[in-house]
């Protein structure tokens, strides 16, 4: 048996295969052939070299481009027959999404999803929307599927800088009595980037959502519950150009008190800085 044939039969070397006469002959050839032995050693070395690239992640800018293009493509489907078929490849229903988020990331993104759904209901009632509310909800879900920015920090200053850098929004994290910040991450609502800041305290965790919106006027905190039959209490309010919400597994009145105490003090102020 020649070198080329032996290499072809044994390719790829790591693959488990039934050892018939052909494979046995090929292995015998490689064992007795220094060139073939070197060939497979080089093959391994090349593979190991490529494996070093595993530490290279696709940059966030690329993920955003892909997400944007996919969203655009879903909004403006081509007229030809190449449109993806309906069914499993289409976005899931709102509550199916919540279930998936819960399974995949734990309860907090699911809580966020529930919040977004509630906010959306409010928006539908307020202004009406061309697309269904679920489109906006799914948008955030899809964005999560292709990656997102986040920061793990207990430092309010660092979180403030993160928000300013990522959202172009100068906003102070809430000073919630008995709670401290643990992380902040970017979310997406109606194509606009917002943020979720997670706080931890003795009573559990709460999340504060900040979503810049140009036409938003100030309104005081109110409890929003029951619109979608979800037991999670949500307190929503707004400052000029910023929608805000607080959600957590606390009693509704406790949540409202936290939001009210925080929203009337410095943190509610926000301003936009010029785009990056």
């Amino acid at each position: 048996m020649g070198c080329d044939e032996a290499r072809r039969i044994l390719w790829p070397l790591e693959e488990l295969r039934i050892v018939g006469p052909e494979v046995a002959d090929a292995r015998a050839h490689v064992r007795s052939c220094p060139e073939c032995e070197a060939y497979f050693a080089q093959d391994r070395a090349l593979l190991d070299l490529y494996a070093k690239a595993r530490s290279v992640s696709a940059p966030m800018s690329l993920r955003l481009r892909v997400f944007d293009d996919l969203a655009q493509s879903r909004r403006s489907p081509p007229s030809g027959p190449t449109r993806p078929p309906p069914g499993p490849t289409n976005p899931p229903s709102r509550w199916e999404t919540v279930r998936r988020l819960t399974r995949r990331y734990g309860p907090w993104p699911a809580a966020m999803a529930a919040l977004l759904a509630l906010v959306l209901i409010g928006k539908v009632h307020d202004r009406g929307m061309d697309a269904g509310a679920s489109d906006v909800f799914v948008e955030d879900y899809l964005r999560r599927a292709v990656g997102q920015e986040f920061i793990v920090s207990r430092d309010p200053g660092e979180v403030r800088r993160f928000l300013e850098r990522e959202l172009g929004l100068r906003v102070e994290p809430l000073a919630l009595d008995g709670f401290s910040i643990v992380r902040a991450e970017i979310c997406l609502l109606e194509g606009k980037r917002g943020a979720m800041i997670v706080y931890e305290g003795a009573d559990g965790r709460v999340s504060h959502y900040v979503v810049p919106r140009e036409d938003t006027k100030a309104r005081p905190p109110t409890i929003t519950t029951g619109s979608l039959g979800d037991p999670m209490p949500v307190v929503t309010w707004s400052t000029v150009r910023v929608e805000q919400a607080l959600v957590g597994e606390l009693a509704p009145q406790r949540l409202l008190a936290l939001a009210t105490a925080s929203s009337v003090s410095p943190p509610a102020r926000a301003s936009r800085k010029p785009p990056r």
Partner: peptide, 14 residues
Amino acid sequence: TFEELAGDQMDALY
């Protein structure tokens, strides 16, 4: 969803 699948493959594709 397609986005989930693509998201999972993104690093390897890159």
